[in-house]
Design a protein around this nucleic acid. Structure first.
Length: 282
DNA sequence: CCTGCCGCCTGCGCGC
DNA sequence: TGCGCGCAGGCGGCAG
């Protein structure tokens, strides 16, 4: 379940191992992996040869490789996606979806994705910011993130705070795990109406989001310093330090009360019933 | 425009 | 043992 910190680790890996290299060929191994590329697999494969990767960018959970002609390769890891750097001679992974080879005959870039919620597309003119993600808000560790504008927009919403945190057009990069962790750190109940949040509470919540992501990034930052780029949310490097997510019936690290799991949008929310009491009327 | 909800996918773990 | 089901969940698209 890659969220912002995991995706940023992948971006750094791509920056290190792929920028400056010229593509020789691209192979789509499973058409669903390029379903967002409306022109189809053959068009995706034809667009890449000869192009040189000039940068690796990220916004929220989206990644893109800027190319020397102003175009870009856009990628989203979805639930289970991985971008791997592997020698061409290495055996295929069971869920290998896309392969990109380079003219230098060095290691390939492979997109592996078990559940195929993720995917890639070739975006003409997308080097700066690919059109399909123009609606994605800046993320909380982006220097250009506008805290005041975020607070105002958040409090204008007529919804619950966790729904708002998961809305990538309001703030990007936050998924179910870090939403629960940040809400716990800020002692906010997931169902708190956004309209009822004070500016101070929004500021504290944003601080908690940055903190939990910063911790994750620090923990994960060591795993890309080798010949591979890897994301694996399930066995993730950060899962050990989670306070509430997935910890039903286990003691709250702060007060010891058992963590509760509650249904939320056909999924789950985890919280401490003492530190994060349900707001009146919610 | 705004908000809420569905369905896409696959593997795993559980209960019967 | 084996089967079926619930669960994991980001996000585009659509309904109201």
């Amino acid at each position: 379940m890659p969220e912002l910190p995991e995706v940023e680790v992948v971006r750094r890996g791509l920056e290190r191992w792929v920028t400056g290299r010229q593509v020789r060929s691209a192979q789509v191994r499973h058409p669903r992996a390029v379903r967002r590329h409306l022109a189809g697999s053959a068009d995706f494969e034809a667009a890449l040869p000869g192009r040189t990767v000039v940068a690796a960018h990220r916004r929220g959970k989206y990644l893109w490789l800027a190319l020397d002609n102003g175009d870009a390769v856009l990628a989203h890891l979805g639930m289970s996606g991985q971008l791997l750097i592997r020698p061409a001679a290495e055996a295929d992974e069971p869920h290998l979806r896309v392969t990109i080879d380079f003219a230098d005959e060095g290691p390939q870039l492979r997109f592996v994705d078990q559940r195929t919620f993720g995917g890639m597309s070739y975006e003409r003119g997308g080097a700066e910011l690919p059109a399909p993600i123009a609606h994605i808000a800046r993320d909380p560790i982006d220097p250009a993130f506008d805290e005041a504008a975020f607070g105002a927009a958040l409090r204008r919403r007529r919804t619950e705070v966790k729904r708002a945190l998961l809305d990538q057009s309001l703030i990007s990069g936050v998924g179910n795990i870090y939403a629960d962790e940040a809400l716990w750190r800020a002692r906010v109940h997931w169902a708190t109406p956004t309209a009822r949040l004070t500016a101070a509470r929004v500021s504290s919540l944003l601080g908690a989001i940055r903190e939990v992501m910063g911790d994750a990034l620090a923990a994960g930052g060591t795993s890309f310093d080798s010949l591979y780029v890897n994301v694996n949310g399930e066995s993730g490097y950060f899962s050990r330090s989670l306070a509430v997510y997935g910890r039903r019936d286990q003691p709250c690290p702060r007060c010891g009360r058992p963590i509760v799991r509650e249904p939320f949008m056909n999924r789950s929310s985890f919280r401490c019933p003492r530190c994060q009491p349900r707001p009146r009327g919610a």
